[in-house]
């Protein structure tokens, strides 16, 4: 559908300002995500990374600036409509529906869809990617371990068959080994055709898998470029990579 404009970015944010009540959280950021990329947004706690994702998803309304996805403006479109347009988010802290079963969580991920065969096929893919979810599909989601909950949150987001996947701090609270597993799954999801916008405090890991990166500081983008270049830059190393 959108292959005609491959040279245009899939997601384009321009001069975005967002307020959290009285707090001016995003102060005029612009960024682009191209089809097929993994782009990461790194920065300290409170820099505005989650706010950016929440605005893309429609949970917050931009005060100023534009967001367009596949050529259409989506700024201020309500959250439940955004999913239908092909953007899905794995929120910070996973936010799984703890008192529902794993299966019900995955069903809810496909809430906007009615193509039964397609849903079935995607469920199969999710179970192949996360075999532990299949083993525990009748279990209450709240009884899963942290890593399993992260997998469930990702599987749930994939069930809407997004073209752009937003990931908010997938490494949060996980052991290093699990983080590596989750990140290799992200690479895998990207390779099968899903574009990824990844927000991370763990800059090391994020830069290791991303194609491009933006550094966010108190609501402004201070640096951007190839993930490899940023990982090598003195400034980023000092501020985010621990020397």
């Amino acid at each position: 559908m959108t292959d005609t404009n491959t040279n245009k970015p899939m997601l384009k944010i321009d001069g975005l300002h967002v307020y959290y009540g009285a707090i001016h959280a995003i102060k005029g950021i612009s960024l682009e995500v191209n089809q097929g990329e993994i782009v990461t947004l790194i920065g300290a706690n409170g820099a505005g990374k989650s706010t950016t994702l929440r605005t893309i998803s429609g949970l917050l309304k931009p005060k100023e600036g534009t967001i367009s996805f596949e050529g259409e403006s989506i700024g201020g479109v309500p959250a439940h409509e955004i999913v239908k347009r092909g953007i899905s988010q794995v929120p910070e802290g996973r936010r799984i529906f703890a008192d529902m079963t794993v299966m019900e969580n995955l069903d809810l991920g496909a809430f906007t869809r009615s193509d039964k065969d397609g849903i079935k096929a995607d469920l199969k893919t999710v179970f192949e990617r996360f075999p532990r979810l299949e083993e525990r599909k009748e279990q209450l989601a709240g009884t899963l371990s942290g890593g399993e909950q992260q997998m469930l949150a990702m599987g749930r987001a994939l069930m809407s068959r997004p073209r752009l996947l937003l990931l908010d701090e997938p490494s949060m609270g996980l052991a290093p080994l699990l983080i590596r597993e989750i990140f290799s799954i992200i690479v895998d999801i990207n390779k099968t055709g899903t574009t990824v916008l990844l927000v991370e405090q763990n800059a090391n890991m994020a830069l290791s898998i991303a194609h491009r990166a933006y550094v966010l500081e108190t609501g402004r983008i201070t640096l951007s470029g190839d993930a490899k270049d940023l990982a090598a830059s003195e400034e980023v190393r000092k501020a985010y990579l621990g020397g």
């Binding site: 998803s57 429609g58 999913v83 529906f97 991920g109």
Partner: peptide, 14 residues
């Protein structure tokens, strides 16, 4: 049930 548990995340499901 989803909206009762977490309205915002329910919205993220569409």
């Amino acid at each position: 049930r989803a909206a009762s548990f977490d309205t915002e995340t329910a919205q993220l499901m569409g």
